[in-house]
Each structure stands twice: as C-alpha cells, then as structure tokens.
Design a protein around this nucleic acid. Structure first.
Length: 259
DNA sequence: ATGCCTATTAAAAATAGA
C-alpha cells in the first residue's frame, strides 16, 4: 500500500496536478493540507471518478484538510477533539479515518507566526490537544499514523541554515518539545529519503529561488506507531512535484507499506 | 533548467504562509 501527505496550498489551484499525481504514483491514501476551500468547493466528484473517497474538514479561504482513500474510508472524525479555538472558532486543521488496515490523521498544525504572537501559544495548545487525542491509538496494536504539515522542523538538520532561524518559530525548544511529547505516546518520525541532495526537505519558499537553491525545511512529517513503522518498506520526498509552474510550495512525502 | 512568490477575496489591497 502507498500512502502520502501533501500540503497542496489550495486544492482548487492544484487540482490538475493533484489528479495527475495520484494517477502517476498510484497512491492509495493521501492526507491533504491547506485545501483553502469550503467543503462545498472540495472536488469530491472528480476524485471519486479516479476511485477515491474523500473525508473533508474545510470552511473557507484558510486552512482545510482532507483524507482521500481508494482502500476504504470509515469512522471519519472531523476536527481535533478538545482542540483550542482561535479567534473564537475551531479551525479546520484535522480529520481522521480508518483506511483499510490503517487508522490515519491528516493534520495542519497552526503556523505560530511569531514567538510573541497569540498564534504561537495557540500552536502549542493545539499540539497538546493532539497528543491527548491520539494517545490511545498510538499505543494500540493497529497500524496508526499522524501525517501532515506539522510546521516544526524537528532538528537543526531539517532547515537549510539554522543560523537564519534564530528566534523564529518552527525551531524553538518549546515546539520541538511538543513533537517529543507527541512521540512519547508511542510514535516515531518516519524519515523519508531525499531524491536529491542530502536533506529530505519538504517545503521551499516560493521567494528568492528557494527551490533551485534548495533552501528548504522538513516540516511535513509522518509519525507512526510501532505496528505502522514495522510495515514501512520505503519513504521519500517527491521533490519532482515541487518543480515547474503551478506547484505547491510543499512536496509530498510518500510512504510505502507492506500491508 | 528546479528560476527570483502564490492564493484568496474581491475588485485594490489585505491577509496568510514559514
């Protein structure tokens, strides 16, 4: 089975690429982030023509997540139970479902913006709620994984120049401690292979030649429990999907499983 | 070439991304 996670930066703008990518890679389950759509605008019909069912949590121009599956999609949970509000609302940043033998989450962790910003406090609270929400499944016997845009670089090796990130979000001890606490529930970071260069970056800014100069970050992660990681046969970042006109600023992380 | 930011909302400029 092949599963993947991809921050598409607008499902509407990315739809032609997304459909072609699903067909060319033969992906069975895809976790999507930043649909930037309402649930009504989500192209469920076109995806169904390709054989995928959709579980969507989306409400407008920002955020939005989804799960696509052609191996079953059951017991869908929309949202992060116990998750914090921002601006008085629960933003659409999580959806989970059972896809064949797997229990999976698609998550879009809040960015944080700046360390002094309310959004950063919100980010840490969101991580705390995520940890509590997944703990039981993480410790369970069923293959389980949280996939998505975590908006944290787990180590200094996961940014192209750690010195440039001094004092910025995505690299702070508190954010990395939140990741460690999540792993403590029984999850491990499934490290993908880079298909070029030394680091499996998953995001490159659109500005200043980020991609051609490989000024990237690894912030799109796959956190799986033991039954999940034990079934992993390969994992890689599909950097080809970041090339050319009309690309997202994130590349997909692909995981192959012996399941 | 992998190439100097993109998407949305809304009708110009603001917001968000990281």
């Amino acid at each position: 089975m092949r599963i993947a996670t991809w921050n598409v930066n607008s499902i509407t703008a990315r739809l032609p690429r997304l459909l072609a990518w699903l067909e060319s890679t033969g992906t069975d389950v895809l976790c999507i982030q930043e649909t930037k759509s309402t649930a009504e605008q989500f192209p469920a019909a076109q995806l169904r023509e390709l054989g995928y069912e959709s579980a969507v949590n989306a409400d407008g121009r920002w955020n939005g997540v989804a799960l696509l599956s052609r191996v079953g999609l059951e017991d869908v949970v929309v949202g992060l139970p116990g998750g914090p509000d921002f601006g008085g609302v629960q933003e659409p940043r999580a959806v989970s479902a059972t896809c064949g033998p797997l229990r999976l989450w698609s998550v879009y962790v809040p960015n944080g913006r700046e360390v002094a910003h309310d959004h950063y406090t919100y980010k840490l609270a969101w991580f705390e709620a995520l940890k509590d929400a997944v703990a039981e499944d993480a410790a369970g016997a069923r293959p389980f994984a949280v996939l998505g845009d975590f908006n944290v670089a787990p180590t200094d090796d996961d940014v192209w120049d750690p010195a440039l990130f001094e004092g910025a979000t995505h690299v702070t001890p508190a954010e990395r401690a939140a990741l460690a606490a999540l792993r403590e529930t029984g999850l491990s970071d499934v490290m993908p292979r880079p298909l070029k260069y030394d680091h499996p970056f998953t995001f490159w800014d659109y500005r200043e030649l980020g991609f051609p100069k490989n000024k990237g970050m690894r912030i799109d992660l796959v956190y799986g429990n033991k039954p999940f990681t034990g079934a992993v046969s390969d994992a890689y970042v599909d950097r080809d999907a970041r090339k050319g006109k009309g690309a997202s600023d994130h590349a997909p992380v692909v995981v192959d499983l012996d399941l």
